[in-house]
């Protein structure tokens, strides 16, 4: 186990839960990031597009605020190339659109509503991620 941070993670998770609760309590919407991001462009009306854009801007501001006080340094990865990032991004975008959700929409909001669809989706992407990391490590030989 490396760099295990249970308390920070639990606190961060609680904040994410509070955010999902604010969005449901006030606006009646699921805090699913992939859906919100896609909806900025494809939602039915200006109002629907506007709150999604506001959420995305908030997300970026939230990241920036944290970074301002507690800079995060991410160790560079030798195996990562621009091409790989592009392919990865494409697959993530395609997969979340096809499966109607990601870690937040299915993994947090869906599981919290005891949605069977979301439970199955969450178990599937976790398993897929674990298998992928295992296979990928063999390929890059680390």
């Amino acid at each position: 186990m490396e760099n295990f941070t249970p308390y920070l993670s639990l606190a961060g998770g609680a904040l994410i839960g509070i955010s999902a609760s604010i969005l449901m309590y006030l606006n009646g919407r699921i805090a699913g990031i992939s859906g919100i991001v896609a909806g900025v462009f494809s939602a039915s009306s200006i109002t629907e597009k506007a709150w999604r854009l506001a959420f995305v801007i908030g997300l970026i501001i939230g990241g920036a605020i944290y970074m301002h006080f507690f800079p995060i340094t991410i160790a560079p990865r030798e195996f990562m190339s621009t091409e790989l990032l592009i392919v990865g991004g494409l697959v993530i975008g395609f997969g979340t659109a096809m499966g109607s959700g990601c870690t937040s929409g299915h993994g947090i909001c869906g599981v919290s509503r005891f949605s069977l669809r979301s439970l199955v989706a969450t178990a599937t992407f976790l398993l897929s991620g674990i298998v992928t990391v295992y296979v990928f490590k063999q390929i890059i030989g680390s």
Partner: peptide
Amino acid sequence: GAVLFGAGWGVI
């Protein structure tokens, strides 16, 4: 969709 997302997540 979930398999694809998980794969992309695992790589990057």
